[in-house]
Amino acid sequence: MMLVTAAHAQSASENGAPADTGTHTETGAGHGSEPHFPPFNAHYFPSQILWLAIVFALFYQFMAKTVVPRIGGILENRRDRIAQDLDEANRLKEETDEAIAAYEQELADARSKAHEISRQAHEKAKAEAEAEQAKVEEELSEKADAAEAEIERVKTEALGHVGSIAEETAAAIVEQLLGKAPSENEVATAVEAERMRQIEGA
């Protein structure tokens, strides 16, 4: 391009050095004095096309090689990350659900176990109480039997003594009435006779 710059130097001066004088002399540069509507001035078409091609080609290269992959990568990354986070969230949710289910299962188990234990304790206590009761009842009935036997014994003994008591009493009454004690045989016979009479009369 340096070479070109050197080459055009004289052509530029021939054309009246448009770059130096600035803004408007250039319309006449390639086309005499005919005034041109600048966008339709074909004199600049080659330069426009050339520089557009150069600039756009470089721009496209940069966009295609650097910018698009970079922004695409950022967006891709974000999408992946979001998807990953969602997966992670789902996984954690599942774990939580599992934990909750396990907890509830455990709770139910514990509850039924506690129920079982209390039931067993209840039954045991009941059985013990019943056994105790039976034992006490047995003891009591034994004592009652013993007492009854004692009463029976005492009663028979007492009844056994009734004859002699009546004889003594009758002898004492006769002695008081007659002043002399009857013989034991008489008394015993009389009492016996009386008792027989009473038993028969009853």
Binding site: M1, V4, T5, A7, H8, A9, S11, A12, P18, A19, G22, T23, H24, E26, T27, F37, P38, P39, N41, Y44, S47, Q48
Partner: peptide
Amino acid sequence: IHQFNIYHLIPIDI
């Protein structure tokens, strides 16, 4: 129209 004028910054002639 002046705003559409084109002028040389680095003249190149091939």
